[in-house]
Design a protein around this nucleic acid. Structure first.
Lengths: 212, 212
DNA sequence: CTTTAATCGATAAAAATATAACTTTTTTAG
DNA sequence: CTAAAAAAGTTATATTTTTATCGATTAAAG
């Protein structure tokens, strides 16, 4: 494997999943080879950009006049994005959104397995959502350590988000996927992905207003 | 109001909601004035960047040694982000995630009012989720036109996403918030915000894997 | 077998964005 | 009343990201 001479850019990283989705579609239609031009047209992007992005992940080069072998490129992307090694995760906050995530099995395709959830509400503790048990928050450190979980999902109100994050980190969690509308302060080395639905909604709404 | 000499950057736009959230916190604690340095420290950003961002939205300048008046800055941000003019929206796909969104009233704070939902499943059509009626898809054009709705939320499986988007656009929807894992092809002038949970999850997972 | 057209890959230019350096303003302290 | 400190504002530089250009390669058509 060649050493990464230049670090892969964040912008590129964000596009890779879109490429993969598009390739799945083409593959399903029986398209054998795919060119960067085709991908660019399908996703409203610049062909050169697509080529550069692909250059990071592809193991075999594309052929002039043909492009890349669809199945190979899919394999390379899946491999790069780590869809093949399944990863266990826990979720804290079994309310509205947390409930929805627990009930959704689609993440399994991306190698995510939410094993169980935690909450403070006695009404949900002890119950099971989509086969996943809901435990009392106090058991989080114990279970995270026992099963060596590294990924935590936060779907609690913003007021308790930092507290939950701190607990996760101290228990050994290394990556946090947060849906709380709150900036989290984490020690270095902990990966964080903040999903701020309200914020992105606000931006969309703004575009709308400015059209009037 | 001065003409926007330079267009506001997308990156800035993405940070504004975070500033606002942070200011709410400070305001609740009774902090009267806030400096760009303080905001930067709280959100792990560069103070200059914060100042430049604020310069776009603030109506009155900040004072050296003191900073900005907290309540004024909040008002300016809210105003800029359009939180004050409530906007009606419809949602298509009353399944898992759609259900969660319908059940969540928090978006009202940001000026969003989901009035009703549409689906094709006879089991949910005619029911009500959190007081919002679920109608048959066929009634979408009629209701969108009648109430002059401009914003549509898509929470259907990726297979039907494009179809739904087309229907929305033809009915007069001007902005789409999509949770479907599918690139949507829309005519120019239609605002689109694509929320790809699976993709952002994949990226977080990847950071985790690369730590091992 | 030769020509042709399409595409890749690499390099260069341009644009956007973030960081740094410097100047000005205003409050507070001596 | 003056000097120092803190923070905003402004201009300049560096970095990142996107877009454009050009030659090399190769499958397909004549």
């Amino acid at each position: 494997m060649a050493a990464d001479r230049t670090e892969i850019s964040k912008a590129t990283l964000n596009r890779l999943p879109a490429y993969l989705r598009y390739l799945y579609e083409l593959d399903k239609k029986g398209v054998q080879t795919v060119s960067s031009t085709m991908i660019a047209a399908g996703l409203d992007l610049n062909p050169v950009q697509v080529r550069k992005d692909i250059a990071f992940v592809a193991t075999s080069p594309g052929k002039p006049k043909l492009g890349y072998v669809t199945k190979e490129l899919i394999a390379d992307l899946e491999n790069f994005l780590g869809y093949h090694n399944t990863r266990d995760a826990i979720l804290v906050g079994a309310g509205g959104l947390g409930h929805a995530i627990l009930g959704y099995d689609g993440f399994a395709k991306y190698g995510l397995n939410v094993t169980c959830a935690f909450d403070v509400d006695p009404a949900v503790i002890g119950t099971s959502i989509n086969g996943k048990p809901v435990y009392d928050m106090s058991r989080l450190p114990e279970l995270v350590k026992r099963f060596n979980i590294r990924l935590g999902i936060i779907t609690v109100p913003s007021g308790s988000a930092q507290e939950v994050a701190d607990l996760m980190v101290s228990a050994g969690i290394k990556a946090i996927w947060s849906f709380a509308a709150k900036h989290l302060n984490l020690p270095a080395g902990i990966a964080l992905k903040h999903e701020d639905l309200a914020a992105s909604l606000a931006l969309l709404r703004m575009q709308l207003v400015s059209q009037d």
